[in-house]
Amino acid sequence: MESLSIRASRRYGTLSPLRYPGGKAALAGVFADLVDDLGLDNPVYVEPYAGGAGAGIALLRQGLVRRLVINDYDPAVYAFWRSVTEYNEKLVELVRTVPLTIDEWRHQRELYRSGDRTDTLALGFAFFYLNRTNRSGVLRGGVIGGLTQEGNYKIDARFNRQTLSERLMALGDLSDRITVSDLDGRTVIRAYAQDPSVLMYIDPPYVQAGSRLYLNAFDARDHEALARIIDEVDGAHWLMTYDVAPLIEKLYAHHFRSRYELNYSARHPGFTDELMIASPDVAQALVTRWRIPEAG
């Protein structure tokens, strides 16, 4: 199957405060083009499996969507996004003052592992702290620089207090336009399935990466259940990305599918080969703008 190179008409850079392995913030330009091509009136952008929500944040901050829906079933991720919208000043103060030391890293790791949902700010910040101080932002990974801090990079390498504070405050200013939930992603898809103002980006846990990257990894039954829910969406506009796997090819055989690579220029190569699946109207927009060949 041929892989198609997509070059979005615009680029927004990194606006999410989180680091996510395999994050799709670079797709924001593609979604912005789709909003234009679909002619959506007061669009609502929904991510049922949000994680870092990089693309959605870019669209909201650029004024390209009216509302952003961030959903993540993981309680710590949910606690972080709730803290961003409900306890923004306190969260920013923590970012500005928290020690960046191994002792503090161990303390935040224990808070994260305890999973105490009664203190949203503490759990949300613990998640954020580890996301910014662990290698590649992986919660199960080790601290940048190692426990002895003898590596080339230290614990503070990805914790720029000023930049992170600015990103968080910008989201705080937009909090009345952000909805945060901790539902199963399939429930969120159902909730918005009939809304024609919705552009939904569905980025579920992948088949191959599975438990290595996702705390709430899917098994085959989960992938099958999601496919059944997708078949019920007939109002909202949606686009899904997945890894290229026989199971996914089979489950979405009756939907538009194309392998893709995303590029902004020859100097900025994009993702490794992945699968893009889309609703009929989004598929038509993709084909028209980028002449994407459908998978056979």
Rank of each mutant, 00 (worst) to 15 (best):
A170C: 11
P205K: 07
D176N: 08
R177P: 08
L183H: 14
A170E: 13
G210E: 09
S197A: 02
G172A: 04
D182A: 13
V207H: 01
D176R: 03
P205A: 02
T179Y: 07
S165I: 06
T179D: 08
L215S: 10
S175F: 10
A217N: 11
A209N: 05
H223K: 05
M169V: 08
L171I: 12
S197W: 06
L226G: 02
A191G: 08
Q194D: 11
S165G: 09
R228E: 12
R228H: 15
V207W: 00
Y214E: 01
R177Q: 10
H223C: 00
S181E: 08
M200E: 03
S175I: 05
M169Q: 13
L183W: 15
H223V: 02
D222H: 13
I189G: 03
A225D: 15
G185Q: 07
P204N: 00
Y201K: 02
D222Y: 15
D203P: 04
Y201A: 00
I178K: 04
A193N: 06
P196Y: 02
E166F: 12
S175G: 12
S197N: 07
H223F: 05
S181V: 08
A191H: 13
P205Q: 04
D195N: 01
Q208A: 00
A209S: 04
E166W: 15
I189K: 06
I202F: 05
T179R: 07
D173G: 05
A191Y: 13
M169P: 11
M169C: 07
L174F: 11
P196G: 01
R221S: 15
V198G: 01
V180I: 06
D222N: 13
R177S: 09
D203V: 02
R221I: 14
L213W: 12
R221G: 15
A191K: 13
A193S: 10
V180L: 01
P196K: 01
L226M: 03
Y206G: 00
